[in-house]
């Protein structure tokens, strides 16, 4: 078990180095001189050259990479072109909001996706199964922005049940429990929109795992022992089918972060995705790269966690 975890940790070292290199390359490929914004006619070419030198822009690429990495591990992602804000500051401001949204969607995906998949599998080839399977396919197939717009249209604009965007009602100035309730009220629609695709994939995955497991010899053994259907399905089949589901804990993280870009922009949710969209519009490459690097690292950690979880739930790896 410890050996397995150590191996996984070791394997992720080259991956994390690769992530930083790829981020660095993309950043270097971005068009425009980082100093272009500061250029004003009164600065002479000599002065510009001096500041380039000072910023290390004339160093060989690998030296630049190590300097950049040195800053990054200290949490310094540089400053925005416009306004000279600290990028880390901007991100830190929004990170919690994105985490609230993605974490809710994450929980929703599994809390709803797993039971839907199990029910569909147990009721295989019945109307319930067909209905749930169809729902899951629609969930995978619907463009998330379209679903988001539909949800806002019906639940916010037509029915007026939920706010159409934002995270808090600024004018109300809530505090304490009222504030929490207000955030929750704003959270429900974007969390549903963000999780829909994931609910659908989790339930499809659970269903097919469950069907595979139900064909296993040990299920036949359990039946031969005269156990009740409930014990056969939940004790013998479900627990085995759940093991591979753990692997998509990790896989769903990049999916949710991608989705957050769109969901946050539709719902005006003040998170990293919305920051990213603004950054795209303003060509703030520094922000985009920082977001890339941070999410890639989070995804890597997520994968690592799900691999370790896998080892914990599967006794064959545990030993």
């Amino acid at each position: 078990m410890l050996k397995y975890i150590a191996r996984r940790l070791l394997l992720s070292i080259p991956v994390i180095i690769g992530i930083t290199i790829l981020s660095f390359i993309i950043m270097k490929l971005s068009p425009g001189d980082p100093l272009a914004n500061f250029i004003n006619p009164s600065i002479s070419m000599e002065d510009l050259e001096i500041s380039r030198q000072a910023l290390g822009l004339n160093d060989p690429l690998f030296v630049q990479y190590f300097k950049w990495i040195g800053q990054v591990v200290r949490g310094n992602f540089g400053y925005t072109y416009s306004g000279n804000h600290s990028i880390s500051g901007l991100i830190l401001e929004r990170l919690p909001n994105t985490i609230i949204l993605t974490l809710s969607a994450f929980v929703l995906s599994f809390v709803l996706g797993i039971p839907i998949g199990v029910i569909a599998a147990v009721r295989k080839n019945t109307r319930v199964d067909y209905g749930l399977t169809f729902f899951s396919l629609v969930g995978v197939a619907i463009p998330s922005f379209f679903f988001g717009l539909l949800v806002i249209y019906f639940f916010a604009l037509v029915l007026g049940l939920f706010p159409s965007g934002g995270m808090i009602n600024i004018r109300a100035g809530y505090t304490g429990y009222a504030y929490f309730k207000d955030v929750l009220h704003h959270l429900i629609l974007p969390a549903i929109v963000l999780s829909l695709g994931n609910i659908a994939s989790v339930s499809r995955f659970t269903r097919s795992n469950m069907l595979d497991v139900l064909k296993e010899d040990y299920i036949r053994t359990a039946k031969a022992k005269g156990l009740r259907n409930k014990a056969i399905v939940y004790k013998h089949a479900f627990r085995n089918a759940l093991i591979p589901v753990v692997t998509i804990f990790g896989l769903s993280i990049p999916f949710l972060f991608s989705g957050a870009y769109i969901t946050e922009s539709i719902f005006n949710w003040p998170g990293m995705g919305q920051l990213g969209i603004t950054a795209i519009q303003n060509r703030e490459y520094g922000i985009i790269m920082a977001l890339n690097l941070i999410t890639a690292t989070l995804v890597l950690l997520g994968n690592l966690t799900s691999d370790i979880l896998y080892a914990i739930v599967d006794p064959r790896i545990r030993h």
Binding site: L11, S12, V15, G18, I19, L22, I26, L29, S30, P31, P254, F255, F257, S258, G259, Y261, I262, G276, I280, R283, Y285, I288, M289, L291, N292, T295, A296, T297, V299, L300, N303
Partner: peptide, 18 residues
């Protein structure tokens, strides 16, 4: 492993903005 660590949309956006 490296490529899948980046959420697809992030990579797409990076490429499209560059």
């Amino acid at each position: 492993d490296i490529v899948i660590s980046f959420p697809v949309l992030f990579l797409l956006i990076s490429i499209s903005t560059i």
